[in-house]
Simulated scan of single mutants.
Amino acid sequence: MDPRTVTFDFYGTLVQWHEGVDACFRAIVRRHGQPAMELAPLIHAFHGEGRRLRDTPPWRPYRDVLRESLRFALDRSGLPMSEADVDVMITGLSRLPAHPDVPAALAALRAGGWRLAAISNTDDDLIAGSLPGLGLELDAVITAQQARAYKPDLRLFRHAHEVLGVAPQQTVHVAASQPLDMAVCKALGLRGYWVNRRAETVDPQWLPFTEVKDVAEAAVSILR
């Protein structure tokens, strides 16, 4: 197998995850007759509960994580969750557009001879609807559902490398999360690119990695 492989985190790195979550919560609070409700506490609770559920055995499908995280967030704000709310969340996060820089960057890497794969904390059916927006078909899409493990559990990456037929050191990993992805790069000795789209602060405990502003900048560096 050709060892020149770039793996990508999916949500936030390739597609517009944070924008999608914001849009879902805006639609949900409108449904509840609260269009002026502050979204930040809801989203903070949603993400926090999602992390807790992913990190707490036993493994559960990401669809269930989303449902229970949404329930937790709405309960904290005094809003009763309905199946319609769940549908808004699941549908919205199943059809996320790519970041504008992504299709051309992926095409350039493919033209440069690199295999391209996604490693994502999701279910197969949830990621499927967002894949067409990338502009090309990835060589592999590895999910937490397949490995029955969520990042930063090393089992997800080990499963991905087995599927791809490569050693960890033969890959480059590009991702927008330090604690979920750069932590794994450090543990496995991967060459990591941290995509800092949201002007976050470098956490030195996860170094070494290369900070870039988007996937396009990472692609230029990889092809150099």
Rank of each mutant, 00 (worst) to 15 (best):
M1C: 15
D2H: 14
P3G: 02
V6E: 11
F8I: 04
D9V: 06
T13E: 00
D22W: 10
D22Q: 08
F25A: 00
R26K: 06
I28V: 13
V29P: 07
R31M: 09
H32T: 03
E38H: 07
A40K: 05
I43R: 11
F46T: 02
G48A: 11
G48N: 10
E49H: 13
G50K: 10
R52M: 08
P61K: 11
P61D: 02
V65R: 09
L66Y: 08
R71D: 08
A73W: 15
D75Q: 10
D75G: 12
R76L: 13
S77T: 11
G78L: 10
L79E: 02
D85Y: 03
V86W: 11
V86R: 07
D87M: 11
V88F: 04
I90K: 06
T91G: 14
L93N: 01
S94Q: 02
L96P: 00
A98F: 03
A107P: 01
A107Y: 00
A108T: 01
R110V: 00
G113M: 03
W114D: 04
L116A: 05
L116I: 00
I119S: 05
D125Y: 05
I127N: 05
S130P: 02
L136A: 03
L138G: 01
I142E: 06
A147S: 14
R148V: 05
Y150C: 14
L154V: 13
L164C: 13
S177I: 05
Q178Y: 14
A183V: 02
C185I: 07
C185H: 07
K186W: 02
A187R: 15
D203I: 11
A218C: 00
S221I: 14
I222A: 00
I222D: 00
